[in-house]
């Protein structure tokens, strides 16, 4: 966490320096955007983290650990992929929820599969955005081709952390 904070703040310093030297209109736009984001997140992040934290106390911890834990392997990855596709929300719920799952002992490959499924297979986004805006055949083909992504990313994550 300290490393992440250091990298983020260093990158921020570089960006601010670039904006400082660039055109003032661009810097103004950045300040405006930052205020908007800040307010947007200040309203949502504490609520999301509280909600996820309380919700986590209600989940059956032993069952979650058993079916999705680091030892659960492929079956855990597949189950996490299925659940991820059903989570009907934006990042403000899914990331705190992922954190709650991590605290309950869900393994990294399973968490990665869960997040991938949430981002590419979300039924909620399919209905709200893709079906109304894009051609049906294209949407079906994209969705079908994306079915392999959550298990694939989970397996790659397992390879990366060396827990195959």
């Amino acid at each position: 966490m300290i490393l992440a904070a250091t990298i983020i703040w260093l990158a921020l310093v570089v960006c601010v320096w670039l904006l400082w030297r660039g055109p003032p209109a661009r810097a103004n736009r950045a300040v405006e955007t930052a205020c908007h984001y800040g307010l947007f997140m200040a309203l949502r992040l504490p609520l999301a983290m509280m909600g996820a934290g309380f919700a986590a106390t209600l989940l059956p911890e032993r069952l979650v650990g058993e079916f999705l834990g680091g030892e659960s392997g492929w079956s855990g990855i597949l189950l996490a992929s299925l659940i991820g596709g059903l989570v009907p929300s934006g990042p403000m719920i899914s990331f705190p929820l992922t954190l709650a799952l991590a605290k309950m002992g869900v393994g990294v490959p399973q968490l990665v599969a869960f997040l991938t499924a949430w981002s590419v297979l979300s039924v909620h986004r399919l209905i709200t955005w893709e079906l109304p805006l894009l051609e049906l055949r294209f949407t079906i083909a994209r969705y079908a081709a994306s079915l392999v992504l959550p298990p694939l990313s989970g397996a790659l994550a397992a390879l990366l952390i060396g827990s195959v």
Partner: peptide
């Protein structure tokens, strides 16, 4: 905004690397 603050840099890096090939896989699959 979400992943590094909540999940930490290590997790974000592993997930990012594991997800790098996914756009190509879906593109060809579709």
């Amino acid at each position: 905004v979400w992943e590094i603050p909540l999940m930490g840099g290590d997790f974000a890096l592993v997930r990012f690397l594991a997800s790098l090939p996914l756009p190509l896989v879906t593109a060809y699959g579709t």
